[in-house]
Design a protein around this nucleic acid. Structure first.
Length: 135
DNA sequence: GCCAACGTTGGC
DNA sequence: GCCAACGTTGGC
């Protein structure tokens, strides 16, 4: 089981959109590093769903429902499919992640521009722990 | 709205 | 193959 974080601008595609869609094709990724991570995703891997822009917080957990396949729009790129698992009790903001020493190595902080990123089990568990209590 | 960080492009 | 110029992302 691996863990990941997907970033999205909520005005483009939000957690609420995912809930109403029940599943979605994660397409449009045009970055090689991000594509390579997507290629490593396995079915049932857990995904932290992060809103960028004015929100900047992890809002929910999704799961990989279909592993990477060629983007029908452009075979050089890949897409995956995800389904919502559950909304976090309390969203975990970027500010909270920054203040948590155990999360200092998260790619979210190290490389804020990467939109598909790996998360360690320990980091994932820590995020879940933070989401249990309000900021 | 600004700008730092980073990836990509293209000239050499 | 290097690197300057440029475009994009995303936090502030």
């Amino acid at each position: 089981m691996n863990y990941w974080l997907l970033k999205t601008e909520p005005s483009t595609y939000s957690w609420e959109d995912l809930l109403s869609d029940k599943k979605t094709v994660w397409d449009g990724i045009r970055n090689y590093q991000a594509r390579n991570f997507m290629a490593d995703m396995k079915k049932d891997d857990q995904v932290l769903f992060y809103h960028t822009g004015t929100v900047k917080e992890i809002v929910g957990i999704a799961a990989v429902s279909k592993e990477a396949y060629a983007d029908p729009a452009d075979a050089e790129w890949k897409v995956i499919e995800i389904i919502p698992v559950k909304k976090l009790k309390y969203a975990v903001s970027l500010g909270m992640v920054k203040t948590e020493k155990k999360l200092a190595d998260m790619v979210l902080l190290r490389n804020s521009r990467l939109s598909v990123q790996p998360v360690t089990r320990a980091q994932f568990d820590q995020i879940i722990a933070l989401s249990q209590k309000s900021a």
